[in-house]
Design a protein around this nucleic acid. Structure first.
Lengths: 332, 332
DNA sequence: CTGAAAGCGCTTACAG
DNA sequence: CTGAAAGCGCTTACAG
């Protein structure tokens, strides 16, 4: 039913090797031969069988992207960018939602779908990267995000401590005195960003108040809204909030609106991620904006380089450029 | 390097056929044999090679999902749901961003990555489904969305005419008299939803005013914001707007806020899709909420049924349940 | 520059 | 119930 390489060879009057050479762009083929083969390919509408090719070559030109959830705007935008970056290089990305701990871990440890994929870009949520060993995967892996890689893998991440420092310092420069943080806790993002937050307070000679550091159960609007309600119930509510991602900030803004408070007059709000929602929200959201295209492009390049056998045993740690986008939620 | 089926067979002291039988859950295997094989699989950490299996069986248990853009919340949420629905059935989803016309069309016509995938769930934007023929794909295909399938393929879609009728009727029931529509035009969504919009106006004895029907260039916040600005510049601006998706509505709300207009007091706004952003926005967005889980589950089921060779030549058209979620943007 | 042949790792008739 | 062997459609040494 499906046309095979040998059908093309027969029609073009050459050997299968020659057809394969043409398809794989090998040199030393006369223009005439190439034209004949290409005509046959077009006439038969031939498509190489990826399974066979991958079985034989041991490479598929597929990479996996494992992210906690693709319904979350930041990851959706990141996934889209990585998908594009890979496509530019002739690579296809399979996107995996890991959702919770067990699934994420199993995915990585299960060796990523047999031999199908050449490598993986992994944004861990539950799995501690430091506990991953290359034996677990058996394949090239690039880590995304805050969590220390334990020197085992290549990684590309924002300098979250510095970015959080900048975000908090911006709030301080506005003259705010009670600056809350939403999203502390956990083992990754929450820890690292709190570090930058506290560092900025300290640098300004301000003490950090545990009552102003809210943990919540997740990084969604719902959690931001709930944390903000807790903060407003405090005897002395904050006049500024640094939310560890935009979704939390959007939830917090919702609570502030419900409470009839003005942003930024009563409470200034900063987020992290620069998702599209925040740019169009009223008030628009001041946020840390990591360069997602840069991130995507470099993560893919790093992985492909590793797949090609380069890099050796030194593990590279790339720092994603970011800017602080000052918008209405802090009076910008 | 990688362990093979034959390694497992050797270790378990059985033939490769027996190992294959165990892996594929074939009957007539003694518990003892099964246990021996499973022990060997565990000991060697054996993972079947997907390429080899797929080459041999002609099935991969991969399906593709082709959507215009995964960075768009509706598609991100839908992709997440389809991914989950497929996983429940042991199927992996490859997500493809088609972005524009040419890419989308080429993807489908190029036979979907050789033989790798078993079928496709396709949300067309540029390609006219009626022009697709099964010869183009050679594989089972389920269509998503408004555009008529031309009776060639299975499809699952919301009854957009009825839903738009409901949305518009809701605005009429609020006593609004100048009801605008944002997102008309194009060949799919814009046409169908305008049909329901006009139908509702007519049923209420109201004439439709072309000046109140805005096309815009896309379905993003940016387009909604721009269209809303045009509407406000009208000699007689609208007192209600039905936006053909939530992103347009969110953009429109932003323009209204900038203009100092109150929602819903001055202008009531309704969207379509029920993306998470709209639920947390202030004001929260009244919208048509299609049951995305239902959609995902049925699209996957339909495709798998087709892959299994069922369905024959009759093409099924499934209608997704929806509700009108009345929220603050219309005073709910 | 091209051809004939082996082999990637599975599954599946075909025998026993 | 199990074993030996062919074959899915490619790519790649190996000869010529």
């Amino acid at each position: 039913m499906a046309t095979r390489l040998s059908d093309v060879a027969a029609r073009a009057g050459v050997s299968v090797k020659t057809v394969s050479n043409v398809i794989n762009d090998y040199p030393h083929i006369t223009a005439r031969t190439r034209a004949k083969v290409e005509a046959a390919i077009a006439a038969l509408d031939y498509k190489p069988n990826v399974s066979a090719r991958s079985l034989r070559k041991g490479r598929s030109d597929f990479i996996a992207l494992a992210i906690p959830e693709m319904g979350s705007p930041y990851f959706a935008e990141l996934g889209a960018a990585i998908s594009r970056a890979a496509k530019r290089r002739g690579i296809t990305v399979l996107i995996d939602q890991t959702e919770g701990e067990s699934a994420a871990e199993r995915f990585v440890l299960d060796g990523m779908r047999g031999q199908l994929i050449d490598g993986i870009i992994f944004s861990p949520l539950a799995t501690a990267p430091a506990k991953l060993t290359s034996a677990d995967t058996g394949k090239p892996l690039v880590l995304l995000g805050e969590r220390p890689a334990g020197g085992q893998f290549d990684r590309v991440a924002v300098d979250s401590v510095q970015a959080s420092y900048d975000a908090t310092t911006h709030l301080i420069s506005l003259g705010r005195h009670r600056i809350a943080a939403i999203g502390v806790g956990g083992t990754g993002t929450g820890v690292v960003r709190r570090k930058g937050y506290r560092k900025a307070l300290k640098a300004a000679g301000m003490a950090h108040d545990p009552a102003l550091e809210l943990a919540g159960t997740g990084y969604h609007r719902l959690d931001g809204a709930a944390s903000m309600r807790e903060l407003l119930a405090l005897p002395e509510p904050p006049d500024a909030v640094f939310c560890f991602n935009d979704l939390l900030a959007l939830g917090a803004l919702r609570t502030l609106a419900d409470a009839g408070l003005r942003v930024p007059a009563d409470v200034a709000v900063v987020g992290f991620d620069d998702i599209e929602d925040g740019r169009y929200h009223s008030p628009s959201l001041t946020t840390i904006s990591p360069d997602k295209e840069w991130l995507a492009d470099n993560a893919v390049a790093l992985l492909l380089d590793r797949i090609a056998g380069n890099g050796g045993s030194t593990h590279r740690d790339l720092t994603v450029p970011y800017t602080l986008e000052i918008r209405e939620s802090t009076g910008g």
